[in-house]
């Protein structure tokens, strides 16, 4: 890597953390995610207390219970937090990626920058590398906040395996956020007016993060009744599969639709690692990976494409030739 690359990388990384907007948005994301975890942990405590009161009352009445106590899986409490990361994190990623180009376009510093003897890809690569480190830092901070909250509010100390699963979920989050940032950076370089890039990014965000997953959820037969159709009808898993086999085309179509959304892949992969998806709860990593590797590979491919797009667009020809009027 050239010296120009490192110079741009260091400046961009510093600029992000100097930005008040970024700090406020990032703090808001961390607070929202931590609050969600706290609420989830408190909710679990309530369920556990209810169960203990129920057992106590049964004992006093001379009875016994066959019902198992609620199982504490600390990582499962992160469901809400990761949903926030999926939705709000993507917005933050778009804003930061867009801002890296927009600030230079609006300020008019690009001519000075490109008048220096820098390489063809130094600007794009330096900015993308800075974004990668920004997200790594933010997610490291988030992981720390999660561990501290789980310990102090949930009283949970994570095992090595759980820490590995949290780490893999954060890895998926890093890839997912890089996709959004790279896409916004590429679009801001490609369009004449940076605001057009912001608009296009949000239209994509709306489709990928909200509309497609919502259509998929609405089409899911199990979501037709609150609490789950099969659970309400008291149909066990084996029968569920038997019933769904009669609707294989419908189910394949629904799945194919969901698979066009990178957010859905991120959600599936992270929920599997966190054990939110029951079939993966407390399962070995190899088992989870064998069932969900595609959900990691798709976001990886998306982030790679986003990065390639940004590298191809963030160049002198686009940035100076298509400057905003």
């Amino acid at each position: 890597m050239s010296r120009a690359f490192w110079t741009i990388f260091r400046k961009e990384f510093g600029d992000v953390f100097r930005s008040r907007y970024f700090l406020v948005l990032c703090a808001a994301l961390i607070v929202v995610m931590t609050l969600s975890l706290v609420i989830s942990a408190l909710d679990f405590h309530t369920r556990l207390s209810d169960y203990q009161r129920y057992v106590q009352a049964l004992k006093q009445a001379g009875g016994t219970t066959q019902e198992a106590p609620p199982q504490l899986s600390p990582l499962q409490q992160l469901r809400g937090s990761f949903e926030y990361l999926e939705i709000i994190g993507a917005i933050l990623a778009i804003v930061i990626g867009y801002g890296m180009i927009a600030k230079e376009k609006y300020r008019g510093t690009l001519r000075l920058l490109f008048s220096r003897p820098i390489g063809l890809l130094d600007v794009a690569a330096g900015k993308l590398a800075a974004l990668a480190l920004v997200w790594l830092s933010v997610l490291a901070l988030l992981s720390l906040a999660i561990l501290v909250t789980l310990y102090f509010v949930g009283g949970a100390v994570l095992s090595v395996s759980e820490i590995a699963k949290l780490g893999l979920s954060m890895g998926d989050a890093w890839v997912y956020l890089m996709f959004w940032s790279a896409l916004a950076l590429g679009l801001a370089s490609f369009t004449r007016q940076p605001s057009t890039a912001l608009l296009i990014s949000f239209v994509i965000w709306l489709s990928v993060v909200l509309i497609i997953p919502q259509i998929g959820d609405t089409m899911d037969p199990d979501n037709q009744v609150p609490g789950g159709l099969f659970q309400t009808l008291q149909v066990d898993k084996a029968h569920q599969h038997a019933v769904l086999e009669h609707f294989s085309f419908y189910e394949s179509t629904r799945n194919a639709l969901e698979e066009t959304s990178i957010s859905k892949h991120f959600e599936r992969a992270s929920f599997a690692f966190l054990g939110v998806k029951e079939m993966y709860d407390r399962q070995p990593l190899a088992y989870i990976w064998s069932g969900t590797w595609k959900d990691t590979v798709w976001p990886l491919a998306g982030a790679w494409l986003g990065t390639a797009f940004a590298l191809s667009q963030c160049n002198k020809r686009n940035l100076l030739g298509r400057k905003s009027k």
Partner: peptide, 28 residues
Amino acid sequence: IGYLPENVEFYDALTLRENLLYFARLSM
């Protein structure tokens, strides 16, 4: 070459030294 564009714009949040250091490093 050295180049001074019309209406030269720098990074306003940085000091003069920081701006010059940035361009000096880009000039190797």
